[in-house]
């Protein structure tokens, strides 16, 4: 049974349409990510589920009950904010107890037990009496997480909770989020602009673009079979190149505007003008390779890898290589790629 059901949600702020009819079912216990660039409406959609924003049209159901017109406090949800929104005048344990107190869940003793358990889950039981401003960003974030899970809400809403943390902490928190989700099995809606975060955390990803669902599917599906140029560019930041598919001697080939060709998989049936999506990590560069030639523009050293920006048929092309592969600017290198890994998208 669907735990959360959104049916053709529309939202406008004044004359600006932010959401253009979004329908989505979230299964019970599912971890779903709303992924998109800033301004795509993902946070607005989350706030609509929370009840902090009204809908212009459409409806929200939680466990089969229509909650579209209910205020946030009447919906059994918990939300974790990007800024954490801890109450500065309350201690850590009072912050975590707040939802239990306001919703009248359990006796005082039961509440204290639940607070202790929640703080233990996020490994902060030793800081229970501190004030939020005495904690580091990572600790504040854990308090916010403890506060969100303590009441075991029907739906857990996370609004870019990891974006204010540094890279190292963010990785730790991702692991922790996965573990907590596995342990508690809360239906979770997670908003992020970070495709890696979405890929590593979610059961299902909903890719939003311009207030519409661009594509939805499991992380593996979204990653390996992007259906649109936007999807393939946003997930894995693939290179998008205009090309024309013609029949070559060895099956279909993509012909670029400068006349160079790239071998495609035999089963590609499309012909004519298309967009070719080449993922940067799938490209390999070889000074003496026989594939299409591209000119090296710049190299960005990333530590574990090198990123090269090349020029192919006047279009910029990014490629990730091992960190010991070195080319100089202006050098011409051959591109090769497994034909199976090339996505052909309608133009």
């Amino acid at each position: 049974m669907a735990n959360v059901r959104l049916s053709s949600i529309k939202k406008s702020f004044g004359k600006t349409d932010v959401l253009h009819g979004i329908s989505l079912d979230v299964a019970s216990g599912e971890f779903i990510s709303l992924l998109g660039a800033s301004g795509c409406g993902k946070t607005t959609l989350l706030r609509i589920v929370a009840g902090l924003e009204s809908v212009t049209a459409g409806g929200v159901e939680i466990e089969g009950v229509d909650v579209t017109r209910l205020p946030p406090e009447k919906r059994d949800i918990a939300m974790m904010f990007q800024s954490y929104a801890l109450l500065p005048h309350l201690s850590v344990s009072e912050n975590v107890r707040f939802p239990l107190r306001m919703r009248g869940i359990g006796s005082r003793e039961e509440q204290a037990e639940k607070v202790a358990a929640a703080l233990e889950t996020v490994q902060l039981d030793h800081l229970a009496d501190r004030r939020p401003r005495q904690l580091s960003g990572g600790q504040q974030q854990r308090v916010a997480l403890a506060r969100a899970i303590v009441s075991r809400p029907k739906v857990l809403l996370l609004d870019e909770p990891l974006s204010n943390l540094d890279a190292r902490l963010r990785e730790d928190m991702q692991v922790e989020l996965i573990e907590i989700h596995q342990r508690l099995g809360l239906t979770t809606i997670f908003v992020t602009h970070d495709q890696e975060e979405a890929l590593s955390l979610s059961d299902r990803i909903v890719l939003l673009n311009g207030g519409k669902i661009e594509q939805e599917g499991t992380p593996a599906e979204i990653y390996s079979q992007p259906e649109t140029g936007f999807a393939s560019n946003f997930i894995g930041s693939a290179n998008l190149l205009p090309a024309e598919i013609i029949d070559g001697e060895t099956g279909p080939v993509a012909k670029f505007s400068d006349g160079q060709t790239l071998q495609l998989a035999l089963e590609v049936s499309a012909r004519g003008p298309v967009t070719i999506a080449l993922r940067q990590e799938d490209l390999s560069l070889d000074a003496n390779g026989d594939g299409p030639k591209a000119k090296v523009r710049t190299r960005v050293f990333l530590g574990a890898r090198n990123r090269y920006v090349l020029g192919l048929a006047g279009e910029p092309l990014r490629a990730l290589t091992a960190n010991d592969v070195e080319f100089s600017a202006g050098q011409s290198v051959g591109l090769s790629i497994d034909p199976q890994r090339i996505r052909v998208l309608p133009r």
Binding site: P71, A78, F81, A85, L87, R103, R147, S151, L157
Partner: peptide, 11 residues
Amino acid sequence: RLEEAARTMGC
């Protein structure tokens, strides 16, 4: 957002 957070926590 503190008020919004309070609303989502049952206030």
